[in-house]
Nucleic acid binder design. Structure first.
Lengths: 129, 129
DNA sequence: CCTTGACCTTCCAGTGACTGGAAGGCCTAG
DNA sequence: CTAGGCCTTCCAGTCACTGGAAGGTCAAGG
């Protein structure tokens, strides 16, 4: 299979697939014409990485997860630890964003949003009161 | 005032302050020795940008907000629109992260996390079921 | 046989918002 | 006169791609 077919099947852009080869996540074969030749296993790995990325795992976490996936003697505890670390990270991001949202909501609510210059949003940014 | 004092007072790293000059957010004066010389107005702007960044506004949004702040004839509606656009962005990010969190939580919960290799997290990433 | 257009290749540069580090000038205290 | 703590510029790296240029390959149609 050529890269275009793999892109269509996995939903990943060809650029991204080449990038994943660059950084050693996958190692497709090469045809005589220099084209990448993907096996089912390569496709499968790309799907795996795509789903892990969609859950917000970093590339390095994806690499670790892939390694665990391919290790028949893995301990599920190792997988779980990566997932829990990532879950913590996500919770922290959500908390930070929620704080921003609450503050912003208050400011937007307090702002008349008309033709006049008076604006509590700018006042807050200016004073930090 | 030298950059170190400004950094201490605003809480921004010196590197960041120099970067903000690079991209034209501030324009401190220069002493005969080549050192940056910051006026109160520069400090004030840096505080403004620091607070806007803490609320998650992008640098370009900060630039626009600063311009509005310095425009006595601004309409508060323009400020409000920037803030509301950013608020939307934040809500979308929170929603995306919440989805990830929910999925991950379910998977982490389903995983025994012991010495055995069987792992629903890997299974999900592998199958996308 | 030739051309067209859709593929594929590599390589380089840019994104956002910094951050780290090297190499070197300036300034004050002892 | 030296030590150290400032300051300067410039270059490179981060993360995970993304865009684009220049060029090779392949299948179909004339």
């Amino acid at each position: 299979m050529n890269i275009g077919d793999v892109a269509a099947r996995t939903g990943l852009p060809t650029k991204t697939i080449r990038y994943y080869e660059d950084i050693g996540l996958i190692t497709p074969l090469r045809g005589e014409n220099g084209y990448r030749r993907f096996r089912e296993a390569d496709m499968h790995k790309l799907g795996f990485v795509g789903r892990a990325r969609a859950l917000g795992f970093s590339i390095e976490e994806c690499r670790d997860l892939l390694a665990l996936y391919e290790d028949e003697d893995r301990a599920s505890a190792d997988v779980r630890q990566i997932a829990m670390g990532h879950l913590d990270e996500i919770e922290r991001k959500i908390a930070a964003l929620s704080d921003m949202r609450d503050t912003l909501k208050g400011l937007v609510h307090a702002c008349a949003g008309d033709h006049r210059p008076n604006c509590p949003i700018l006042k807050e940014l200016s004073d930090g009161a």
